[in-house]
Design a protein around this nucleic acid. Structure first.
Lengths: 251, 251
DNA sequence: CGAGTCGTTGACGCGTTTCAAGTTCGGTGG
DNA sequence: CCACCGAACTTGAAACGCGTCAACGACTCG
């Protein structure tokens, strides 16, 4: 299975340098040093670690795993975008996160996944069988420390999102969403503006606890007020990140 | 400073057995084995661990630390109830969690607290200086594993709360809140009904992303429909947990 | 060219918020 | 012991932001 020319919705870094068969983005656990507080793995550990992984690819809109599926693997996203979501019995859905290259997913307590993971674009991942991964964890000093610090960051992000969902208006939510996407791009050394939106309005709505129509109206309002420029429907520029940030925080 | 007879709002376990000066509730990190996937610490490690801690007490409504304060300690709550919250500049507030005895708080990335922690009732905590705690972590096999599993559980709870905040109605939110409190009591071996509510309607509102009035109306509606019985304003009985659970999940 | 998906916009309805009284209850002081 | 007070809670009425329903345009793909 090969990755189509990738003109789904996410152009992303047109082509990150590809080193001798390894995935095109560094593995968050082993190489994304800027996100970790602990010393990176040594050369030997990295080799042992990569030996555990299989690279897999998935087409746009495919489900990686569903809430309740037996949890057999953990993953590291190397290309594309993924949504993490939970749903109620009647279909109401909440997307709890969007994952970008370098993000890690699938680790949790219990023997089944607590959420659904879907490909927003064609994706590529490193896949680790969970027992092998756990064994590597326990054998490799510093790995759990690193995972703990990643989990702490996720927890802080989750709290920000709860503040958004519980207390922000529709326009504030959309502004916050755009700011956080921009910041994530900037944190990886890519420009914070313009950015591409690999997700649809419906997916943004499910992430922000709104409807498609309300998200669309918020985009329109931000555009008419000059806070954003929509080059295309999935490409946004920010003439003034400072003001947008103020809108996002209700300041 | 001594703890008053504790008739604030939280009678809680009237008097857990108190062993030779140790806090009345077991430390989540060392003793609450039912919440951990890893082997408990050995006797020696426990002794070394407790040597790091100071027991402190705080009166009702006092702030333990605020969002932005330099982070100097981590804590383990041993008695009472604590709220964790974040706020916007204009005062809108979101409570992201309620902590009960046995819960752990204060560990995060960065050198300042990312949220505010307040005593809902008179509280007692074990306090660990963060550097000593970190050193103990790195010296004690299994500790980071345990913290990681705790963080994973918190992350799963945070995702549930996002689903609640983004997609549930007011009555569903209140029902979910009551169910989760009941479940937490049951998980600690205490009766799941009746339960006491150590927090005010305003604090419940800030947790559920609602207003005081809406929370009150939801309580009234659940009461009139026979789903709950309010012995007093802060004591709830559940005649039929199954039906309440269905309401909570929109099923 | 027709069908389908996605996004935008308008009109209207509804659930929650806002504003405003009241009620209950525990604590305090006369 | 009781009157008073304030905090917390409840209830009602009106306002409003977001959801729902519907129409339509832009674009893609057969």
């Amino acid at each position: 299975m090969t990755l189509p020319p990738s003109e789904g919705r996410l152009p992303l870094p047109p082509a990150l340098p590809r080193e001798n068969g390894r995935p095109s983005s560094p593995c968050a656990l082993c190489a994304a040093r800027q996100f970790s507080v602990c010393a990176p793995l040594d050369q030997d550990s990295q080799v042992r670690f990569f030996a555990l992984a299989t690279t897999i690819r998935l087409e746009q809109r495919r489900t990686l795993f569903q809430e309740g599926d037996p949890a057999g693997h953990v993953f590291n996203l190397t290309d594309g975008a993924v949504s993490i979501s939970k749903a109620l019995a009647d279909g109401r859905r909440q997307i709890t996160g969007f994952l970008l290259p370098g993000d890690f997913l699938g680790l949790q307590q219990g023997d089944s996944y607590a959420y659904t993971a879907e490909a927003l674009t064609p994706i590529a991942l490193c896949r680790f069988p969970i027992e092998k991964f756990q064994r590597f964890l326990s054998e490799t000093p510093g790995m759990e420390h690193r995972l703990l610090s990643m989990a702490s960051n996720e927890l802080a992000a989750a709290q920000d999102q709860m503040l958004l969902l519980g207390r922000k208006t529709a326009v504030e939510r959309v502004a916050s969403f755009l700011i956080s996407l921009s910041d994530r791009h900037a944190a990886r050394g890519r420009p914070g503006s313009p950015i591409s939106l690999p997700m649809t309005r419906g997916e943004i709505a499910d992430y922000l606890g709104l409807t498609i129509e309300t998200v669309s109206r918020a985009f329109t309002r931000l555009r008419k007020e000059g806070r954003i420029v929509l080059d295309t429907v999935d490409r946004v520029r920010f003439p003034d990140l400072g003001t947008l940030r103020e809108i996002a925080t209700g300041g």
